[in-house]
Nucleic acid binder design. Structure first.
Lengths: 131, 131
DNA sequence: CTTGACCTTCCCATGATGGGAAGGAACATA
DNA sequence: TATGTTCCTTCCCATCATGGGAAGGTCAAG
């Protein structure tokens, strides 16, 4: 298990083969080495990169953020402040979206509570939408 | 203010002119009446429909859900149970997304708390991503 | 009659992901 | 070795809601 093709690298990293090709296409990953038959081949370091991306995605980072995170990761001269700033900006975005969705959910739950949910047509949910 | 062109209807409803055309194109709205010059023209009922859509979007409903909500709204034979079901399904989706984003935010905040955020390169955020 | 603000249609972009086609390559088993 | 299965390659298209912008027609006010 030293040299992997794209399917094996996908298995090993949790990133789909489709996405590995995509990340390469947009320059998030360097162009992979190729076998004689033009298959992409991946070594341990490549898989490490892929895992990094996978974890960052699972924390909700956008690909452009991940591009920066990868650069910081590779750069031994980075300051932890740069990383922290990126992370906290992302947290702020998440919290903004969470708050917006919570407002929606609360409003809808409130309306639904007052909806009989039976055979009759009267419904405060529609009434609210129609105003 | 009885007969409006698309820009005025947009103003009056909160839905952009661009989106009004789009909703018509995908059949969410009936084809608008046209003036001699082929301009779309909107009456009070059309604006009412647009406001309905605008409010539903602001509660996070997807357009396909709104298509159903509009049908229920128009249908005097509807049961409030149908509306409530749609609404609660949407609440469930929202809450699922909220929970996922909260997990991300919590994980990141935890990592950021342990990141010095100074000039030094050491950073638990990157360490976690690199594992 | 010109000018500026509006309208029309049409095409393209976003962001991350996947589906699927057409054709070549690798490999396992009969 | 022949054949079949599974993998790879590239390329195009779809999602979802929204907007940007071009090219050209229309309208109202000065």
């Amino acid at each position: 298990m030293e040299i992997l093709n794209i399917g094996e690298a996908a298995q090993a990293s949790g990133v789909s083969a489709k996405m590995i090709r995509h990340y390469e296409a947009i320059g998030l990953l360097p162009r992979a080495q190729r076998s004689n038959a033009n298959y992409r081949i991946y070594g341990p370091q490549d898989v490490h990169n892929l895992r990094f991306i996978h974890r960052a995605r699972s924390l909700g980072f956008r690909l452009e953020d991940i591009r920066e995170l990868l650069a910081l990761w590779r750069n031994r001269q980075r300051s932890s402040a740069q990383v922290k700033k990126l992370a906290l900006a992302h947290v702020a975005e998440l919290e903004e979206k969470i708050a917006a969705m919570q407002e929606m959910a609360e409003a809808l739950k409130h309306l639904a509570q007052h909806c009989h949910g039976d055979d009759r047509p009267d419904c405060p949910i529609l009434e609210q939408l129609a105003d």
